[in-house]
Amino acid sequence: MGAELGKYKACVSARSTDKEILKHAQDGGIVTSLLGYALDTGIIDGAIVAATKDFAAKHPSLIMRDNSNWDMIEPWRPIPAVVSTKADLLAAAGTKYNISPNVSMIKEATRSFGLDKVGIVGTPCQMQAVRKLQLYPIGARDVGAAVALAVGIFCMENFPYQSILQLVEDHAAMKMESVKKMEIGKGKFWIYGKRGQVVQLPLKVTHKYEQPGCHVCLDYVANLGDISTGSVGSPDGWSTVFVRSKIGDSVWANAMAAGVFETQPIEKVKPGLELVTKLANEKITKNKNTLESRKTFGVGKALRNPYI
């Protein structure tokens, strides 16, 4: 294929040099450190991130002001929040493994939150949404140019919140409240409890709970982020980072110069780009097949294809 990793100017294995961030981080703390650096240096004046229940309780003014959400504030349900300090950013760190409609805040961030330079973190589909609204701003007046940094995260597929509930409470027999961290790696879904217990579920079990909309997605490594990152390809505690756009290039170079990250060449680490390429091709091939099968889904009737 060749295009599975998108365009990029550089690819490295990296991790944050901030010990405090690494304590909260999913892997190498790339997203949190990068946004933290961008906040500190004024590259952005706020960022849209996926926060959680605890965060929402402490900072009700930073989350989506939307009545329907108040009943939905549950452990491990991500809630889009606009943060403008490093402390708030840190409080929202970590991967949640279910959908956070971060793009829903992108206009509001430039309105009631008053941001001129917005940072946003999101999955590949959310990066697609951001770029579409920059090129075709239909309901996003003056928003496109305000997006100062878009950080994409690798994504094989996502889960609705109820699926995570199902996996944690039914399959792993743990309470959502007692979960410390969730992770997908080494072919398994890992759930770490606060008291030290670890449950692993084979991905065979989790597949059927995936969000159906993810099965037509043709992007694994967030090809449209300014910078995109994920754990795949790098050793434990490190993240693989693609520097893609001109904005990404300049932010990354400055962050490196400021000592925010330590890096290793991606060619030197195991399992390296080979695994990233393999998984990207797996996802794209699988989902292209899904799109193909949608053409003949009914009897002489097709399901819709969004790509033109």
Binding site: D66, N67, S68, N69, P80, N98, I99, P101, N102, V103, S104, M105, I106, K107, E108, G122, T123, C125, Q126, Q128, A129, K132, L133, I138, G139, A140, V143, N158, P160, Y161, Q162, Q211, P212, G213, C214, H215, V216, C217, L303, R304, P306
Partner: peptide, 23 residues
């Protein structure tokens, strides 16, 4: 079966008529 819950629609709506249920 195409929605992946990115939130673009809620942001685009000029009358804030869109919220999210079950993502």
């Amino acid at each position: 079966g195409l929605c992946m819950g990115c939130g673009s629609c809620a942001s685009a709506c000029p009358v804030n008529a869109i919220t999210h249920e079950y993502g």
